[in-house]
């Protein structure tokens, strides 16, 4: 029981990182982006490539940072991967979403994002193959933090959680303390008014993709680190991330963070109650329950 709670929080931090980017895009660009989870795949694979490159060029970097399986090379690769992923997100927006946005409605965007997701996912599998890959072959044993009740945590997961929380804190500070953050929030509140007061919308849109893409890259790498990398990361994670966004309320960054943890905990706790075969349905039952009580999610506002 407590173990499931703990596992849920550890898994949830990855969902939270993914959901922050999604909720921002959904709120400010006003469409449900089904391609968002593919950014996690791009991030994971970009890091895999640069991890290999750095390890080959500077062998000392290939050493793991004890007690993690994370290497110095991979840590550097994460930063490059954030840039690559943010860049891809901007490119996709420029070439697809911006054009569809100009002529079509919200639903066109949703379906365009579906199409983009199909293309990205299959391009990745064409380039990297369908097989499962790993950053590190080593299995790092979980640490016993309590014998009774038995509680186990993996160091990698704790690292992912702490790093995710730090990143969220930084994001919070940027959004609440800087002019950039104010502009971004102004656009979210009222795009027309924000433009009148001199904020350039196109730059703000790019900023959303940079933040969303960067966070997605981190989430993808952390997922790869604690699980494994395969071209279907996006397909497997898109629904939990959406669930987190919806439960938290579209547009609320804090809601997304909380939603991620909630969905993570719920899917771990579910097995205590239900046979494991039913677990895919659990996040949705949570959503349904939340929406019945709060039709706009936990922190969402009614928008008409």
């Amino acid at each position: 029981m407590i173990q499931s709670l703990l596992d849920g929080i550890l898994v949830g931090s990855i969902l939270s990182l993914g959901a922050i980017g999604l909720t921002m895009a959904m709120h400010m660009l006003r469409f449900a982006n089904f391609a968002h989870a593919e950014l996690l795949s791009i991030g994971a694979y970009a890091a895999l490539v640069f991890d290999g490159l750095f390890s080959a060029l500077f062998p000392p970097l290939a050493a793991a940072i004890a007690p993690l399986s994370l290497t110095w090379a991979l840590s550097l690769a994460i930063i490059i991967s954030m840039a690559v992923t943010a860049g891809s997100a901007i490119l996709v927006d420029r070439f697809v979403f911006a054009r569809v946005r100009a002529i079509g409605g919200e639903l066109s965007m949703v379906f365009a994002s579906f199409g983009v997701a199909l293309v990205l996912r299959n391009l990745i599998s064409l380039i990297f193959g369908l097989k499962t890959q790993l950053y590190s072959q080593d299995i790092v044993f979980a640490v016993v933090i309590s014998a009774d009740p038995l509680l186990l945590v993996k160091p990698d997961q704790v690292f992912a959680l702490v790093a995710a929380l730090v990143i969220m804190l930084i994001l919070h500070l940027v959004l609440s303390r800087t002019t950039l953050g104010y502009s971004l929030r102004a656009v979210a509140e009222n795009p027309t008014l924000a433009q009148v007061s001199g904020i350039r919308l196109s730059r703000m849109i790019a900023l959303i993709w940079i933040i969303g893409g960067g966070l997605a890259a981190v989430a993808g790498v952390f997922y790869g680190l604690t699980n494994q990398i395969s071209p279907v990361i996006g397909r497997d994670l898109v629904l939990p991330i959406f669930a987190a966004t919806i439960v938290g309320g579209i547009g609320s960054i804090y809601g997304a963070v909380l939603g991620g943890f909630l969905v993570g905990i719920a899917s771990n706790l579910a097995l205590v109650i239900l046979p494991s075969g039913y677990s895919p349905a659990v996040p949705f039952l949570i959503i349904l329950a939340v929406l019945l009580i709060r039709p706009n999610g936990l922190f969402g506002e009614a928008r008409e």
Binding site: V96, V100, I103, S108, G115, L118, R121
Partner: peptide, 22 residues
């Protein structure tokens, strides 16, 4: 690889359609 390529084509057709005639 045709299975994978087919999915890419399908995705591109849908995106193209929405860009051309939403």
């Amino acid at each position: 690889y045709t299975g994978t390529v087919q999915f890419i084509l399908i995705g591109m057709i849908i995106v193209g359609m929405l860009m051309w005639r939403p």
